[in-house]
Structures are given as structure tokens and as C-alpha cells.
Design a protein around this nucleic acid. Structure first.
Lengths: 239, 239
DNA sequence: ATTCCAGAAAATCTATAAATTTTTGTTGCT
DNA sequence: AGCAACAAAAATTTATAGATTTTCTGGAAT
């Protein structure tokens, strides 16, 4: 007799999901530039699929805040602005502070272990694929995401976690769009370690302070990046 | 020479938006019962429209948390449960507390006037269309929504406000599904007045306390409603 | 000569219908 | 009784037709 695991979810693969994943990646990476018009013809040719799955994917991405839809005049890549970056960061700090406090209030050994494990794994992977120039390491990004997800994972609210995920996605796009010249100067690994330490010590005020500072510092760097905000070109830093 | 206002946005009306509105109303009212399967054939016949606008509407409603989609096996009306009701309420209390505090911290005379005005208008409309039995008054619901929206409107985060709106929608459906026997016993008007008073006095702790109590009380009533949670039928209140 | 407006053509989005693929339910066989 | 193959139903996708918006060209007025 053979014990085969009952197929829990065979293979939830629809064309729409595939296009969604690919589009999402291209949006986050910046290959699809902000405020660019997403024409059906271009999309069907690029992604080799029909209109229906594309519309489905675009609608989901609109809900994620990565795509904008104007009635009867098509889909557009969501534009970026310094104001939106500031607002998203502010909101993320507020909401994740809330979620982290609630997680710590409902702390369990299993949860603390998850946080420790996620941070350890993250620390073992290089931030950049290249030692000289910055080159995005997908593995690091994945683990980074898991770590921050773990921090708020004990808060007890699926909808709150999902909202944090949306904010994280939108801000991640800003990070990718920015060249991040400040890459070598920061020690994000130390920042994560400091957050983890505060979480384990049970000092929620300190943990929240470090977490929000972490986010704010990232935003401050991007806010000064000329490559994403050309309006900074002239008068770089006037008082 | 004639000064004509440039046409701002002619009339953005698509079939998809219409179906979205109608479906939304039917979902919130309970005419489409929880966990019911939404078959394309039924929907096209009922709403007299094609599949494309319907899929678009259903996708938006999925993002709103009113519809659930299972890959390759169709759309379903989101199921209800006591656990979800409790979690949604908890989340709403957390997030709106946050938003209210930030609104009060950024208070302006104009905003306070908006709150006062919204509360006044709400107070002038009857909660129920019938004096004897409870009959939902759409006008009251609309003004109620505007009032709660006004409370958090000064927080300075569009995304946070939108998130609160989603939570409000999902919880509104629970309210409509429940018969609300406790209708005459509560004085929601007084509760709103008390919240407004606390907001105007600048006492954010008190305002938050009253607001969250307001939401919690509503949830507690619905949590005991047998008509929506049949599992309560036996052993109504065991200790 | 330049600018502004009007009309027509092109492009593009929205919607309906048909075809393909997957899932589900049933019947027959081992 | 259990399993497999078959048939029906339903979802997803492709293709086609209909509307709307945008763009381009030409002419008139400043």
C-alpha cells in the first residue's frame, strides 16, 4: 500500500495568474516605467496571451496599487511622486508599528523562533550580487520580505497583514526604481539585528522605534534620488 | 469672449461600473447569500450583461473582500463567520483609532466643521424607515458612512482611509445580514454625539475610547444573532 | 505667417459570442 | 465495494464586433 498525499491544490494555474506574476515583476522592477500607458496590443504581443486574462491581471494589480485604471481610456502604470512616497512611508510606519506592538503583545515562543530564523537566513545572503556595483539579489529580497512579514505575523489580523503587504509592494517599487547609491554606506543587516534584539527583549517601544527608523531612513535616501525624481536636478539642496 | 470650464471628466460610465454597483448592493444587502456560488450564466441573465464587465466587477469585489475567487472553479460570495467578524472588528478598532488620533493631531477648523456638519445631518434622519419594525434607511446609512469617513479624513493618508473603507464595507454586510433586534434599545445617535464632543474637546484618548466602544458594541450584538450564525441555535448561552 | 477650430481617419477600449480546457458527476467494470 | 472511464457542466480563453477616444489634416480667422 502506498501513502500518497491527497492533492491539496493540484496546480492553481490559470493564464491570468501567470500574466499577473510576470506583469507584477515587470512593474516592480521598473521595466514598465511609471505613468506609461499599458496598451492592449502591446501587452498581448509582449506576454503572448489574450485580452481576458490580461484584463484580469490588470484589475488585480490595480487593487494592489501598482496600476491605475481610467474609465474608458485604459490602464496606466501608477505614477510615482515624492509626495506619495512620503505618504506611503508614513502610513507603513504607523500601521506596522501597530502590527508589531500587537504581535509582541501576543508573543509566543514559536513566533519568536520564526523571527530569529528569518533574520538569520537573511543575514547569510549577500545584499548585492556584485561586490563592486549594486546588483539586486532576488534571494535577499525574498528573505527580506519574509523577515518583515514575520515581525507582524503574530498580530492576529489577516487583513492588517495583507494591507502591510500592499504597502510593502508599493514601496518596494520605489526602491527598485531608485539606483540606491547609498547602498554600501548603510548596514541594513545591523538594523535588522537591532530590531530582532528589541523584539526578543520585549521592549516594544524600542522595537517600534527601530523599525520605523529603518523605513524612514530608506525613504529619505530615495527622496533625494535624481534618477527617479528629475525635478531634483536643479537646485539640489537649497535652504 | 466666453469663459467655459474645460470639460474635466465627461462621463466615465462603463458597463462594468454599473454591474459593480449593483452586485455590491446585492452582496451587502444579503440578497446574494454568503458562500453562494456565482455562476456566470446566472449572473449574465440576472444583470443582463456580458461576461467581460462581470469579470471586471467580480475582480474588484474580490479586492474589496466581498467575493472570493478559487482558481478555475469560479467566484463565490465571501462566507461569514464569527471568527472573521471578531477579527474585522478588532482590526477596524485598531486602525481607526490610529487614523482618528492622527486626524486630531492634524486638526484644523475646517475639519472640525466637517465633523460637526456630518454628525448634525446624520442626527436629523431616522435610523429606521418604520417606527415599529426595523427597516433599513438608505439615507441614514449613507450619512452614517460620511460621518465615520469624516472622523478619519484628516489623518493625511489616502491609503489608510481606503483601507478603513474596505473594513467598513465588510462589516456593513454583517450588519445587514443580522436582523438587529437590538435596534430600539441602542441610542447610536447619542454615541455619535459623544464621539463628536470628545473630538472637539481635543481629548484623543476619550474620542478613541468612545469610537472603539461604538464598534465593539455593534459587533457584540451581531455575534449573538442566530439568524446569521445558526451554530448558536443550540446552547444559546452556556458558561 | 501662425494659431485655432472642425471634421474625418485611425487607434483603442468595451462588450458579446463562440471555442477550448478543466472540473465534476455518473455509470460500468473488476 | 473500489476504481476507471465516460459524459455533462462550468470556467477560462480566444476571437469578433461595436463604441469611444485620440490623432491628424485642412481651412479659416487673427
Amino acid at each position: 500500500m502506498e501513502l500518497t498525499v491527497a492533492p491539496p491544490l493540484p496546480a492553481p494555474s490559470t493564464q491570468a495568474s501567470h500574466v499577473y506574476d510576470r506583469l507584477r515583476e515587470d512593474l516592480l522592477s521598473g521595466r514598465l516605467a511609471p505613468s506609461r500607458k499599458l496598451q492592449m496590443r502591446f501587452l498581448t504581443e509582449t506576454y503572448q496571451t489574450g485580452q481576458t486574462p490580461l484584463r484580469e491581471a490588470l484589475n488585480r494589480l490595480t487593487a494592489d496599487g501598482l496600476v491605475e485604471v481610467r474609465e474608458q481610456r485604459g490602464f496606466y502604470v501608477k505614477d510615482v511622486s515624492r509626495a506619495e512616497l512620503a505618504e506611503l512611508t508614513k502610513t507603513r510606519c504607523w500601521v506596522e508599528a501597530l502590527a508589531l506592538r500587537e504581535s509582541m503583545a501576543a508573543s509566543t515562543p514559536a513566533w519568536e523562533e520564526q523571527v530569529v530564523l528569518a533574520q538569520h537566513r537573511l543575514s547569510r545572503v549577500p545584499r548585492s550580487l556584485s561586490a563592486t556595483a549594486f546588483e539586486d539579489n532576488p534571494e535577499w529580497e525574498k528573505l527580506h520580505r519574509i523577515y518583515h512579514r514575520a515581525l507582524i505575523g503574530q498580530c492576529g489580523s489577516q487583513s492588517l497583514i495583507a494591507f502591510c503587504g500592499q504597502l510593502a509592494d508599493q514601496l518596494y517599487r520605489y526602491r527598485r526604481l531608485s539606483i540606491s547609491k547609498a547602498f554600501p554606506s548603510r548596514h541594513v543587516g545591523d538594523e535588522h539585528a537591532a530590531i530582532t534584539e528589541a523584539v526578543l527583549s520585549g521592549d516594544s517601544d524600542l522595537a517600534v522605534k527601530r523599525l520605523t527608523a529603518h523605513y524612514q531612513r530608506t525613504a529619505d535616501v530615495i527622496l533625494q534620488d535624481e534618477t527617479i525624481f528629475p525635478e531634483l536636478r536643479r537646485e539640489p539642496a537649497r535652504s
